[in-house]
Simulated scan of single mutants.
Amino acid sequence: MTEFKRIPPQEAQALREKGAVVVDIRDPQAYAAQHISGAKHLDNHSIADFIRAADLDAPLIVACYHGNSSQSAAAYLISQGFSDVYSLDGGFELWRTTYPLETSTNAAE
């Protein structure tokens, strides 16, 4: 894959069930309030460490608020060597309405 693919929550959920990593690029307060269960929070401060430690060939799903910023982040991750990157269409907001039981708060994880 030389570029990321946009996928709906249903495809993202299927990939999660197969072990895909989910990263959330929303602001820390939004992530702390609620996020996709098991998602890792990424920001400008943590992304370099994440990239160094990551399996570049593992499927990676990028989530933001509505699916716009995640496209830029997904393209960036492809440029950093990731080979299987997806942008979550509709972002966390669509995920939350599609899979309300597949969300967590920091206190719950």
Results as ranks from 00 to 15, higher is better:
Met1Ala: 13
Thr2Cys: 08
Glu3Ser: 13
Glu3Phe: 13
Phe4Thr: 00
Lys5Glu: 13
Arg6Gln: 14
Arg6Cys: 12
Ile7Gly: 01
Pro8Leu: 10
Pro8Cys: 03
Gln10Asn: 10
Glu11Gln: 15
Ala14Pro: 05
Leu15Gln: 03
Leu15Arg: 01
Arg16Met: 14
Ala20Met: 06
Ala20Arg: 00
Val21Ser: 07
Val21Tyr: 03
Val23Phe: 01
Asp24Leu: 08
Asp24Glu: 12
Ile25Lys: 01
Ile25Gln: 01
Arg26Ile: 13
Arg26Asn: 09
Arg26Asp: 11
Asp27Trp: 08
Pro28Thr: 02
Gln29Arg: 14
Gln29Glu: 15
Ala30Glu: 11
Tyr31Asn: 05
Ala32Pro: 01
Ala32Phe: 06
Ala33Trp: 14
His35Pro: 07
Ile36His: 02
Ile36Met: 01
Ile36Pro: 04
Ile36Phe: 03
Ile36Ala: 05
Ser37Glu: 14
Gly38His: 07
Ala39Ile: 03
Lys40Thr: 12
Lys40Pro: 05
Lys40Ile: 14
Leu42Cys: 08
Leu42Val: 09
Asp43Phe: 02
Asp43Ala: 08
Asn44Arg: 15
Asn44Trp: 14
Asn44Gly: 15
Asn44Phe: 15
Ser46Phe: 03
Ser46Thr: 13
Ile47Phe: 11
Ala48Asn: 15
Phe50Gln: 00
Phe50Val: 01
Phe50Gly: 01
Arg52His: 12
Arg52Thr: 13
Ala54Gln: 07
Ala54Arg: 01
Ala54Glu: 09
Asp55Met: 05
Asp55Lys: 04
Asp55Trp: 02
Leu56Ile: 12
Asp57Thr: 14
Ala58Asn: 07
Ala58Tyr: 10
Ala58His: 07
Leu60Asn: 03
Leu60Arg: 05
Val62Ser: 00
Val62Gly: 02
Val62Trp: 00
Ala63Phe: 02
Tyr65Thr: 13
Gly67His: 00
Asn68Lys: 13
Ser69Pro: 06
Ser69Tyr: 05
Ser70Val: 00
Ser70Met: 09
Ser70Tyr: 00
Ser70His: 07
Ser70Pro: 05
Gln71Tyr: 09
Gln71Arg: 12
Ser72Arg: 11
Ser72Trp: 06
Ala74Gly: 09
Tyr76Asn: 10
Tyr76Met: 11
Tyr76Thr: 04
Leu77Pro: 02
Ile78Gly: 06
Ile78Ala: 12
Gln80Glu: 12
Gln80Trp: 09
Gln80Val: 04
Gln80Gly: 04
Gln80Ser: 04
Gly81Leu: 07
Gly81Asp: 07
Gly81Trp: 09
Gly81Thr: 04
Phe82Thr: 04
Ser83Lys: 15
Ser83Gln: 13
Val85Leu: 03
Val85Cys: 02
Val85Asn: 01
Val85Phe: 03
Tyr86Pro: 00
Ser87Asp: 11
Ser87Pro: 03
Leu88Ile: 09
Gly90Gln: 05
Gly90Tyr: 00
Phe92Asn: 04
Phe92Thr: 07
Glu93Asp: 12
Arg96Gly: 05
Thr97Leu: 08
Thr97Pro: 03
Thr98Trp: 04
Thr98Ile: 04
Thr98Arg: 11
Tyr99Pro: 03
Pro100Trp: 11
Pro100Phe: 15
Glu102Lys: 11
Glu102Tyr: 08
Glu102His: 09
Ser104Leu: 07
Ser104Gln: 10
Thr105Val: 10
Asn106Thr: 15
Asn106Trp: 12
Ala107Val: 10
Ala107Arg: 09
Ala107Trp: 11
Ala108Trp: 10
Ala108Asp: 13
Glu109Arg: 14
Glu109Ser: 15
Glu109Leu: 14
Glu109Val: 15
